[in-house]
């Protein structure tokens, strides 16, 4: 019994003296934190530069609510810098039930503006009433 206890103490001292290192994540996740959603898991917006002046807009949402209807609208917004963002192009789809839904659309983006994708999601109940709205803007693409 004494031998077991002494072995135990030696093992604990050996393991703790090795200095178990625990990672420390230092990434910034402020961009991911959102207001509290009721029916939505996440909303996303993306804009990527294509060729010959085209840009590709991506809007996505995820929901685990199987009882709602969702209206997802993907806007290509632009600004000339002197005024606010203006809806330039848009595409809208309606979905029912849980899932991950994506609109991806390419549009021609004339120079002289800054562009961004703006995602708007409306959640409707069985009566057709909008019960929740969520939005998200992408990073800005400057095409002056």
């Amino acid at each position: 019994m004494k031998r077991i206890i002494s072995l135990l103490l030696v093992a604990v001292m050996a393991v703790t003296s090795l200095g178990v290192s625990v990672y420390a994540a230092e990434a910034n996740y402020d961009d991911l934190v959102a207001p509290c959603y009721t029916n939505i898991d996440s909303v996303s917006a993306g804009l990527s530069e294509g060729v010959l002046g085209f840009v590709t807009c991506t809007s996505n949402f995820i929901s685990f609510d199987d009882t709602k209807t969702f209206v997802l609208t993907c806007y290509l917004q632009r600004t000339d810098g002197s005024s606010g963002w203006v809806n330039y192009k848009s595409k809208s789809e309606t979905y029912s039930g849980m899932g991950s839904y994506t609109i991806e659309k390419s549009w021609f983006a004339p120079s002289g503006y800054a562009y961004r994708t703006y995602t708007k999601l409306q959640v409707k109940n069985s009566a057709g009433t909008v019960v929740e709205t969520a939005t998200k803007a992408s990073a800005v693409y400057y095409n002056w």
């Binding site: 898991d41 996440s42 996303s44 991950s100 990073a139």
Partner: peptide
């Protein structure tokens, strides 16, 4: 449902973390 998504860092997301 289980969803695995790989997205470019250009895609900005709001994820529900409050409460």
């Amino acid at each position: 449902m289980v969803i695995i998504r790989e997205q470019s860092l250009d895609l900005k997301s709001n994820i529900d973390t409050e409460d």
